[in-house]
Amino acid sequence: MSRDKILAAVKKNEFTQTQLPDLEILTTLTDNPGDLTQQYITIASAGGSFVYEVADMEAIKTILHKEFKPDVKIISGIKEFDEYTYAGAVANELAHSFADVELTILQAGFGVAENGALWLTETQMNVRVLPFISQHLAVIISRGFLVPTMAQAYAKIGNTDYGYGAFISGPSKTADIEQSLVIGAHGPRSLSVFILP
């Protein structure tokens, strides 16, 4: 069995035990009390996201109405948006059936100020492929749900159980051709982030 052979070979060649470092110093050093919303907006915008500070759900609807025609396929993970197909209701459909989705609207667990990333688990996505296959993605988050860095982000995630989770920090992009940045590689062509009070 290769398994046992490999493990034995590895074990044989391991060396003096070294301790894991303390992460506490880094967490403390980066626990920034500054204006996380402003930092988030600056960094997410630089990464190609459109960030809106909005007063309420109604304000989000108004923006979405302006940006998306009524006849396109829109899926929403938020129950209040009753004019759109509720993601929970179609979660059992074949992933491929979402190929023509124009916009997906989802709620994020929290956001990270240092890099513009939003944490979503499968529960919030309803269907894993949704935030990727959709032509556009909109994510809603509350102001109080921002952390300074990835150190605090993983403290927040802790040992949560999930089947799948992802940090999403912007629209899908590539710079593979001569390092020139192109938005809209395989996933969403845009990411709109709505920050609620």
Binding site: N115, G116, M150, D161, Y162, Y164, G165, I168, S169
Partner: peptide
């Protein structure tokens, strides 16, 4: 690349 993070950092724990 100098980006603060990749666009996607995907955590696969269980199959669908």
């Amino acid at each position: 690349t100098g980006q603060p993070i990749t666009t996607y950092s995907s955590h696969f724990k269980k199959p669908q």
